[in-house]
Amino acid sequence: MLNIGAHLSISKGILACGKEATSIGANTFQFFTRNPRGGKAKEIDSKDTNALLEYMKENNFSKILAHAPYTLNPCSKTEKTREFALETMKDDLRRMEYLPNNLYNFHPGSHVGQGIEKGIELIVNQLNEVLFEDMTTTVLLETMAGKGTEVGSKFQELKEILDGVTLNEKMGVCLDTCHVFDGGYDIKDNLEDVLEEFDKIIGIHKLKAIHLNDSKNFLGCHKDRHEKIGEGGIGLDALVGVINHPKLKDLPFFLETPNDLDGYKSEITLLRENYKF
């Protein structure tokens, strides 16, 4: 089965989000843990989260993915910004235990002129402070496009972060197709080579989820602008190749394309029609 969903709003509650996912043909979904620009999260409604867990069982859901706010930057040169990242991630991971055994994704951040090694050091320090032994959530580093001073546009940078984390078994990677393409990894014409490189540097077992997006730009542009499936520089054939690759086919895929619900439904239908397993 193709495990696919889209980024949905939980403004009406997490169970409503699950039901909205099934209405568009999805069997998973992604959501922001709080306002994507930051701020305080809503109080947890345990009845709502428990109802979602039951609904997921009844409807054969794959793992769902929580996304940290965009403003979370653990490697900022500003202490206040790093403190916000630390407290936000601590709170998010505590809250994720109401939805056990799922996924939590974050952008590694931008070193803003401190240098890539300093950025990696700060990210590792935060992860070693927020991860805890009995957590059930897997925390994912997202592959980035490399705009500005972003950390994580190269597989080697992600490896260095992972290697520095004490509770390494709690960590994984979310590969964003738009980001890696914009970052210079040719998943359009050389997907096999890209995955072999990922496996050699990080280990394919660490790849836990995929953001399935086309790109408005060209290979190696470092722009990070998502496009609808089949309408960008990567193209439909290449993205169909991603969902059908033997090493990827069982992962959860999450659409972050510029769409409304009907658009997501159309894309999910298209991708299911082209899934071979």
Rank of each mutant, 00 (worst) to 15 (best):
A66S: 00
L53P: 02
L15N: 11
K47I: 07
G18A: 08
E54Q: 14
P36Q: 05
G39M: 04
T33W: 01
E58S: 11
K42M: 05
E20H: 14
K40S: 13
L72F: 02
G25T: 04
C17V: 13
S62T: 09
G25P: 06
E43I: 02
F32R: 05
K63Y: 03
K40T: 09
N27A: 07
R37L: 10
K19Y: 13
H67E: 04
A26G: 05
R37H: 12
K19E: 15
Q30G: 11
A26M: 03
P69G: 00
A16S: 14
F29H: 08
I14S: 06
E43F: 05
T28C: 14
P69Y: 00
T71E: 13
S46F: 02
N60F: 12
R34F: 03
K63W: 02
K63A: 13
L15T: 08
L72T: 08
Y55W: 05
M56C: 15
N59P: 06
L53K: 11
T33R: 02
S46G: 00
G13C: 10
L53E: 10
T71C: 15
A41H: 00
L52D: 08
R34S: 11
A66F: 00
H67K: 09
H67A: 06
A51E: 13
F31D: 10
S62F: 11
F29I: 06
F29Y: 07
P36M: 04
D45M: 03
P36V: 04
N27Y: 02
N73H: 14
E20T: 15
F32H: 09
A21N: 07
F29C: 09
K40R: 12
T22D: 10
A21T: 08
T33L: 03
L52Q: 10
A21S: 13
P36E: 05
Y55R: 08
I24N: 10
N50A: 15
G18N: 11
L53S: 13
N59G: 07
N35T: 02
N50I: 09
L72C: 07
S23C: 14
T22Y: 07
E43W: 01
H67S: 06
L52K: 10
I14Q: 00
